[in-house]
Design a protein around this nucleic acid. Structure first.
Length: 653
DNA sequence: TAGGGGTCTATAT
DNA sequence: TAGACCCCTA
């Protein structure tokens, strides 16, 4: 869930970063983010119960990338669910179960594309899958650690202890655990967005001397987090306003002033909300982590350091008294949910000469080494501009010099940033992106600013006039963006809007199926180059239309031309029969007997544009009915909260 | 008009 | 999980 809108909120505390500038450092990685993305690419295989290592390879690509920049990765995995999240997890399991049922139903109706979409939602990342990755990492001498509870707290501790200088994650919650340097949105080109805790006051809009981290954390909790829903009508902006106004450090007193300070007289802050707020704050501060140097569990911050009453820590996990069990959990040898032993690897035992496969091994010192100390996390190396300079990584078992040479050749052959910019710049601007880029406080590191897909954080570069300021080729070609039938209002729109509508209608007529967001096929490049040289919008439409015909004519793979496969009703019944989806102890896969129900790839009949939801507007039927909004919403909120294991919260009168 | 909140989509290959 | 988009409220 995270903190809604936190990453954009932290824009003034953020800066674009590239791994080449982090050489010699250690990075803790929220590995479930990678696993989730990796699983997306092979969800159908997993759902069919087929063997696949696509998700492993996906993660290893990132590991390899970090190593190639001489960065020591520490892969961190989630452990047990916190009691506060048990019901959330149950909800997720139910949701997966629902997706499984829907997939079965859709297959029965022959709507296989939609069924695929549902299948992607019903596959979960299990500890067994994580363990496969851990084993691969062991082969490569890459450190892994399973947190007793949330990986976020574990990574924040690694950062606090000086073991990891940076943290890589997609989850904005991590900022609340006190991590100092967090890299969001790391991509396979090595680019990411660095958020630095020391700059958070800039995002909050207050002077440094009036800022402290507690204010920020409290603001985030107030706006709604994993451990506490927000009060109705309170988001980040209002929470920030309140935290800047109040001088009261005792939140039990301060929170009661929310209605006055925010001029929301109808808001009621009761004692239950205040108690739950205190518990949420304690959860972020005092969650249990595993200290690999001392080989014991401890709290992220000691209770006495923050003068926290232990009674508030009921959601911050509990201490495992069996130290051997705690160690084996941290090593990944135990299933965190069932505590069943799955492996017996131990860092103090000499590594087995297991693998016949040729893998590159890192020679960074392991955090599990008995003589490891935080100073070992910084590896002194010379700077290099070559992104794939393997020499510094000091792998063994490989012809390194030859590889360095090959990689340098490859690096030199890459297009320059300016070339990439030319290839991918379409001049698209969405309203939100504009506002974000306008208040970016840090200058770009490169003299050539790009907006390429490879560098999504690059600012708009001064460049030659673009042909189509109003929409990218992507938007042009996307059949999802078809507008409703043109009416009288449509005719009154500005010319550019009408032209766009016309473009969309052209493509609707052509029934183009666009598969790649990046239009990587050859005909697409032709479209781009044609459009780039055209100055007349009308002319561009004609050319695009021609190009679409080319796209349509492109040879289709045998898989694409497979006839629609009728679903096997018997299997569908089995599929939807509600077998338990216990992600805690089993892989969330469908029985292999259901394989026949999943055709490899089929073309589905297209819905007419009018049958689709255009944009994201809510269907008429689902519009909120104003008079009942507050009561309905607060009821819903209370339900949500009770599912979190907390009591009902204050509602609007 | 700013901001909260609901809904939908992409994520990989 | 984040972001985009849209609708609604104060």
């Amino acid at each position: 869930m995270g903190i809604t809108g936190l990453i954009p909120f932290l824009e003034k505390a953020s800066v674009k970063v590239h791994l080449k500038n982090l050489r010699g450092s250690t990075v803790a990685v929220d590995t479930y983010c990678w696993l989730h993305k990796g699983v997306f690419g092979c969800a159908e295989k997993l759902a069919r119960g087929e063997e696949t290592d696509i998700y492993i390879q996906y993660c290893l690509k990132y590991v390899q990338m970090l190593l190639s920049y001489d960065i020591k990765p520490i892969l961190v995995f989630d452990g047990q669910h916190l009691p506060a999240k048990a019901l959330t997890e149950q909800r997720r399991r139910e949701s997966r179960q629902q997706s499984k049922k829907r997939a079965a139903e859709l297959l029965r109706l022959g709507r296989t594309e939609e069924a695929r979409s549902q299948l992607r939602r019903c596959v979960d990342v299990t500890h067994e899958m994580a363990l496969r990755l851990i084993k691969e990492c062991r082969d490569r001498h890459v450190d892994c650690i399973v947190a007793p509870y949330e990986a976020d707290a574990q990574m924040a501790w690694l950062n606090k202890a000086g073991i990891a200088q940076y943290i890589v994650t997609e989850d904005s919650d991590l900022t609340l655990f006190g991590a100092q340097k967090i890299i969001f949105k790391l991509d396979l080109t090595g680019a990411g967005l660095l958020v630095e805790a020391v700059k958070i006051h800039l995002a909050m809009g207050c002077r440094e001397e009036r800022y402290n981290f507690d204010k920020f954390r409290r603001m985030c909790i107030m706006s709604g987090c994993d451990y506490l829903d927000s009060l109705p009508g309170i988001g980040l902006a209002k929470a920030c306003k309140f935290m800047l106004k109040t001088e009261q450090d005792d939140m039990r007193i301060a929170l009661k002033k929310i209605p006055q300070y925010l001029n929301m007289r109808q808001l009621e802050v009761d004692n239950e909300y205040i108690e739950n707020f205190m518990k949420a704050e304690a959860t972020f501060k005092h969650m249990y982590i595993y200290n690999p140097l001392e080989r014991r569990m401890e709290r992220l911050y000691a209770l006495e350091d923050h003068k926290t009453d232990e009674s508030y820590c009921s959601n911050a996990g509990s201490l495992l008294t069996d130290s051997d069990m705690a160690l084996n959990l941290a090593l990944g040898n135990l299933n965190p949910f069932t505590l069943k032993r799955l492996d017996s690897w131990h860092p103090d035992q000499s590594p087995k000469q297991t693998t016949a496969k040729q893998v590159k091994r890192s020679k960074h010192k392991s955090i599990w080494h008995t003589n490891y100390n935080a100073k070992d996390s910084l590896v002194k190396t010379k700077q290099s501009n070559c992104a794939l300079y393997f020499k510094k990584v000091d792998f063994v078992g490989q012809a390194i010099e030859a590889e360095i040479e090959a990689n340098q050749r490859q690096e030199l052959a890459k297009p320059t940033e300016a070339e990439v910019s030319n290839m991918y710049s379409f001049g698209v601007k969405r309203k939100r992106s504009q506002s974000q880029s306008s208040c970016h406080s840090t200058p770009p590191s490169s003299p050539v600013q790009t907006r390429s897909r490879h560098n999504p954080f690059a600012k708009e570069a001064p460049r030659s006039p673009v042909v189509c300021e109003n929409g990218s080729l992507l938007r042009l070609l996307s059949p999802k963006k078809q507008s409703p039938q043109q009416g009288p209002e449509e005719r009154n729109r500005p010319e550019s809007t009408r032209l766009n509508a016309l473009k969309r209608s052209i493509f609707a007529k052509e029934q183009v199926e666009v598969r790649s967001r990046f239009f990587s096929t050859q005909p697409t490049k032709e479209i781009e180059s044609k459009i780039a040289t055209s100055l007349e919008v009308k002319q561009m439409e004609n050319k695009a239309e021609t190009s679409i015909a080319e796209v349509d004519k492109r040879p289709t793979s045998p898989l694409e031309t497979k006839p629609l496969v009728e679903a096997n009703n018997k299997d569908v019944v089995e599929l939807s029969s509600g077998e338990s989806d216990d992600s805690c102890s089993q892989t969330a896969t469908l029985p292999s007997s259901q394989e026949a129900t999943l055709p490899t790839k089929v073309m589905t009949p297209k819905l007419p544009p009018s049958a689709r939801r255009v944009g994201l507007s809510r269907p008429k039927a689902s519009k909120r009915t104003i008079p009942n909004t507050k009561t309905a919403k607060s009821d819903d909120n209370q339900t949500k909260l009770s599912m979190f294991g907390f009591q009902k919260r204050p509602v609007l009168k």
